[in-house]
Computed example of a mutant assay.
Amino acid sequence: MADKRRFDLFADLIVSRFLAPRVFDVAGGQGKLNEALTRRGRAVTTFDLRHKHLPVTYAQRIFTLDEPCDAELVVGMHPDGATRVIIEYAARHRLPFAVVPCCSDNGMPYNPWMRHLAELARSAGFTTVEEVTLSMDGRARVLVGEHSPVESR
Rank of each mutant, 00 (worst) to 15 (best):
M1L: 12
D3L: 04
D3A: 06
D3E: 07
K4N: 00
R5I: 02
R6P: 05
R6S: 12
R6V: 13
R6N: 12
D8V: 03
D8C: 07
F10S: 00
A11G: 01
A11Q: 00
A11M: 00
D12M: 00
L13G: 11
R17N: 09
L19A: 14
L19S: 15
A20N: 05
V23Y: 05
F24T: 03
V26A: 03
G29T: 06
Q30K: 14
Q30N: 11
L33I: 03
E35R: 12
T38P: 03
R39K: 07
R39S: 01
R39L: 00
G41E: 00
R42Y: 07
R42N: 05
A43P: 01
V44D: 01
T45S: 10
T46D: 07
F47Q: 05
D48V: 06
H51T: 14
H53W: 02
L54R: 10
P55G: 11
V56I: 03
Y58V: 09
Y58W: 13
A59G: 11
A59H: 15
Q60W: 02
R61N: 02
R61K: 11
F63I: 13
T64G: 08
D66T: 10
P68Q: 08
L73Y: 02
V74Q: 03
V75M: 01
G76F: 07
G76I: 07
H78S: 04
P79I: 08
A82V: 04
T83G: 14
R84T: 11
I86C: 04
I87Y: 02
I87H: 07
E88R: 15
E88D: 15
A90L: 00
A91P: 10
A91S: 09
R94P: 09
L95S: 02
A98Q: 09
V100A: 09
V100E: 13
P101G: 09
C102P: 08
C103K: 04
S104F: 13
S104V: 12
D105S: 15
D105E: 10
M108C: 06
P109V: 01
N111L: 15
N111G: 09
W113K: 01
R115A: 14
A118H: 09
E119N: 14
L120R: 07
A124H: 03
F126V: 00
V129I: 04
E130W: 08
E131R: 15
E131G: 13
V132Y: 01
T133D: 14
T133Q: 13
T133F: 12
L134Q: 02
D137T: 10
G138V: 03
G138Q: 06
R139W: 07
A140C: 12
A140W: 06
R141W: 07
R141N: 14
V142M: 02
L143R: 01
V144F: 08
S148W: 10
S148E: 13
E151S: 13
S152H: 13
